[in-house]
């Protein structure tokens, strides 16, 4: 109850920051605010694209939730998303005369494995030599983002494309669209199913139990006979794997190819989504929808008025500030007592 209250208050304060920023900087604040809040619901196009935005965020949100549940800070989500998608797409482009469904499944598995492998490196370094996984995962991510950019600007660039991007994969491989004219695609169902699966796995599976115990108290975990190092590596690997899949699902559903920097922000926002959801895999879904709403609202509003789309990023950062502020409730309570 108290936690729900903090979450709601976090959202309310962050929105207030956004409203204030809009009011201060827009020449037509009334219009800007109207489009910010109602824009994503104006028509099927805006609405569908908002839901589409939430799809990769649900996966990166789950990715962050799992790592955090084991007390492992996976800050390399950005690179895992990007590189997972690049690896899968490049494979998809080279698999010629194979049935489409087989290609589709294979490249999703590859992106899953690549993302997982990348994150497992940091998990291994932490388990083996106590290398801070927060910094190592981030450094690996920065490295891979640069390498990925180099691949898309150089050897894998489609010379016919006007921007740094790979060639398009066979259009038959792509997920069907489910709400024309928007980008919303059938990947949504896959992602929702994964969220439910992760929820059940964390609650009821042995590994889920071990992850929760390791996360809440490492020495107790070791005392209870849990192979703590193995659990940390596994949690990081699963986290990275879901991140890699997030990139691939976005490519299969929306772009049909990898574009340089297409997934920028998916990882960071996934972390925020996981924190708002308090690491609960089911609550990740509404949290991701909320983040997608902020980005879409700002985009639609900047489309119709002079509002800056960066407002969304400022609101999202405000949420980050507030979301783990445990002292917030007591702070406000004291204020009320002091003023009354």
């Amino acid at each position: 109850m108290r936690k729900t209250l903090i979450s709601l208050m976090t959202v309310a304060i962050a929105l207030a920051v956004g409203v204030l920023a809009i009011a201060l900087t827009s020449s037509s604040p009334r219009e800007a605010l109207k489009y910010f809040f109602t824009g994503p619901f104006l028509n099927a196009y805006f609405f569908g694209n908002m839901i589409t935005r939430a799809i990769p965020l649900i996966l990166t949100g789950l990715a962050a939730s799992i790592a955090f549940s084991a007390s492992a800070f996976n800050l390399g989500l950005e690179g895992q998303v990007y590189f997972g998608a690049i690896a899968g797409t490049l494979l998809g482009l080279t698999m010629g005369s194979v049935p489409v469904w087989l290609t589709c499944v294979t490249i999703m598995i590859v992106s899953f494995a690549v993302g997982g492998g990348i994150a497992a490196i940091s998990g291994y370094l932490k388990a083996k030599w106590k290398v801070n996984e927060l910094i190592s995962s981030l450094l690996v991510s920065y490295t891979l983002i640069n390498i990925g950019d180099a691949l898309l600007e150089g050897p894998f660039r489609d010379p016919r494309a006007g921007l740094a991007a790979s060639s398009y994969m066979d259009s038959a491989i792509r997920f069907p669209r489910i709400l024309m004219p928007s980008n919303l695609h059938a990947g949504l169902f896959l992602v929702l199913a994964i969220a439910v699966f992760v929820f059940l796995a964390i609650r009821f599976s042995r590994l889920g139990y071990e992850i929760r115990i390791t996360g809440s108290n490492i020495s107790f975990g070791a005392y209870a006979g849990i192979h703590v190092r193995k659990v940390v590596i596994l949690a990081m690997a699963i986290s990275g794997a879901l991140a890699g899949l997030a990139g691939m699902v976005d490519v299969l559903g929306v772009h049909g190819r990898v574009i340089r920097g297409f997934s920028s922000g998916y990882g960071w926002n996934g972390i925020a989504v996981a924190l708002i959801a308090r690491r609960n895999p089911i609550l990740v879904i509404p949290a991701a929808l909320f983040f997608a709403f902020l980005t879409s609202g700002a985009e639609v509003s900047s489309f119709f008025t002079d509002m800056s789309p960066e407002i969304a990023r400022i609101i999202q950062a405000s949420i980050f500030y507030l979301v783990t502020a445990e002292g917030l409730l007591t702070f406000l309570k004291k204020r009320r007592e002091a003023t009354s």
Partner: peptide
């Protein structure tokens, strides 16, 4: 850590804004 991330994201958004 979370507050540190918030600082980075706020600066990234705020400078572009």
């Amino acid at each position: 850590f979370v507050v540190g991330l918030a600082t980075n994201l706020m600066a990234a958004g705020m400078t572009v804004f």
